[in-house]
């Protein structure tokens, strides 16, 4: 345990043992799974040279694809935030037959291969599909279809982040609000929602990040036309086909990564603000 002792000067004393071991494990693990691959990616993108990097990153087509990816993902994450909240509410506050089954269904988007999801959504919402046939406008092969696929893959996040907080929320708070004369809406908006803000934001951020990186399901519902509704991951695949080296594809990936990082950082700051403002529960 010499390792742990040498580290002991770097940390505040704690009664819980095992810091050295777990910290070492965490760093190694993160490096192998996240840091090294991402460093390799950034390195790869740098191999094209700065001028070329800038040209690819600001190319009209790249910008259009990034706008499509981040824009549609934002819409999908917002939809997931709203309906995820309602789903979590229904699952924690009411007891109804089949609740466990509905609860389990929420996780299905994680288990299903996204290509399978894309194919079934695409067929269902096609002009000759069960659902698509009911509308007189196209869904599959439009931005609406892409958004639906992104909603699907991001569905579990908000539900799963909000659920435990909602379960721990003291019912007495609501009763107190009622006895103090607050109406139903006032209770929801002033008493129930504020403590949920941090967890909703976490769920939103996860759903957003997940949607931005999604490829497998989108290619089956997207028209795939450049400048129209080509998503950034699709453009990355195209760049891979164009040349034998990974440079140009890595450039777009690095730009996506940077944008996503800035967004997640922003959401994290929002969250910290939310915690200070509304207090932390759970």
């Amino acid at each position: 345990m010499a390792h742990a002792f040498s580290l002991s000067r770097l940390r505040k004393p704690s009664v819980i043992p095992g810091f050295g071991l777990t910290f070492g494990f965490a760093v190694t693990y993160l490096s192998l799974i996240v840091l090294i691959p991402i460093a390799a990616l950034v390195l790869q993108s740098a191999s094209v040279g700065w001028d070329e990097f800038w040209r690819i990153a600001t190319d009209a087509r790249t910008v259009a694809a990034l706008r499509t990816s981040f824009g549609l993902s934002l819409i999908a994450a917002l939809v997931n935030m709203f309906f995820g909240l309602i789903l979590a509410w229904v699952l924690t506050r009411y007891r109804f037959p089949g609740r466990r089954i509905v609860d389990a269904m929420v996780d299905l988007p994680f288990a299903l291969p996204t290509a399978v999801a894309g194919i079934s959504l695409g067929s269902l919402y096609a002009v000759n599909g069960w659902v698509g046939g009911l509308f007189d406008f196209r869904i599959t092969y439009t931005s609406i279809g892409i958004t639906i696929a992104l909603v699907f893959v991001g569905l579990p996040f908000v539900v799963r982040t909000v659920q435990p907080v909602l379960e721990d929320l003291d019912k007495e708070l609501e009763e107190a609000a009622a006895t103090l004369g607050a109406g139903r809406w006032r209770t929801v908006i002033r008493v129930i929602l504020p403590p949920l803000v941090p967890s909703v934001l976490t769920g939103f951020a996860l759903a957003y990040a997940r949607a931005v990186g999604e490829y497998g399901s989108v290619v089956f519902v997207s028209q795939g036309l450049p400048y129209v509704n080509e998503i950034a991951p699709q453009l990355i695949v195209i760049k891979l086909e164009e040349s034998a080296n990974y440079g140009p594809a890595a450039v777009i990936a690095t730009v996506m990564l940077a944008l996503a990082f800035v967004l997640l950082l922003f959401i994290n700051l929002l969250q910290a603000w939310g915690r200070r403002r509304f207090g932390s529960v759970g």
Binding site: D107, F110, P156, P198, T202, G282
Partner: peptide
């Protein structure tokens, strides 16, 4: 804040 269920599923 943790999301326990998905982690289990992934594990």
């Amino acid at each position: 804040m943790t999301i326990r269920r998905p982690a289990n599923g992934r594990e």
